[in-house]
Write a protein that binds this DNA or RNA. Sequence first.
DNA 1: CGCCTTTGACCGGCGC
DNA 2: GCGCCGGTCAAAGGCG
Length: 285
Amino acid sequence: MISYCPVALEILMNMDAHTPTKRKVDDLQQDLLRLRKENEALRFLLQAMTTKCNTLEQLIREKNIERHDQFPVAQKTTQFLVRTDSKDNTLIVKDGYQWRKYGQKVTKDNPSSPRAYFKCSLAPRCPVKKKVQRCMVDKSVLVATYEGEHNHDAINGSPLGQFCCSSSTADHNNNIIFNPINFPSHGISATINNNDVINIASPSNSSRPVPITLDLTLSGSMSNQENNGSAGSPQNSSSCAPNINCESRIEDYVAYLTKDHNFTQALAAAVASSITRPPAGTENQ
DNA sequence: CGCCTTTGACCGGCGC
DNA sequence: GCGCCGGTCAAAGGCG
């Protein structure tokens, strides 16, 4: 039994603005067939993306094992940008883990906002540390730097804890925004702009350098905060956080996102719109 | 009373 | 060797 993506269906129905209200049964059946095919295409695309990510993750893991045979294992650091209220001075990032603050320091590079130091207190021997500091450029953005890996699960059991799904939770103060995420062997970068849109850009030397846009406004009621258009832009993000080491998290991201109904809806809508959009220079009707 | 935050002191690395 | 700076420690105080 094939289930239909309601978002894609709605988009397709809205696109067909010239359709008469009374249509022949044959036309409806043709539309139904077309939708079924597109639904299958969406499923295939999603499955292909998941498989591709898993394969890349496996490759990265193998490469890391090779590297670790030659060099000492470097401590893993991951950096996230989290949008919050600029008036909120607590420097608290809700990421699904429990943290104990053990220090705060004013740093030279950003003297206007102190850097807070946290240790994971969810597990007694968890080695993970976290540094949180406001972005120098945009005060509404917190730069959270994680060091080490948790030896336990988050509170809600998700790979990234509440951090990953903040847009679908009741608390909308901490909306995750990504830096341009660099997939080392892939060259793909992903950003979320001010309108809650994920931009996934393939590398310029790719055979199909077509950016994919996912409109996250479909997934909930994320507030559109005024941020002068700088917080989520690649230019600004890179100035706050040069690189993200997300190698071992790709599989977690994919697994988590593909289970998220809101994400799959947004993904389906974006892919559907790109499929159904008439190619430039062609006349479809 | 226990946990957490605050904050000044202390330590170690690094550059000059 | 000295000073700067980032990171950590630990005592004190607040809060539920």
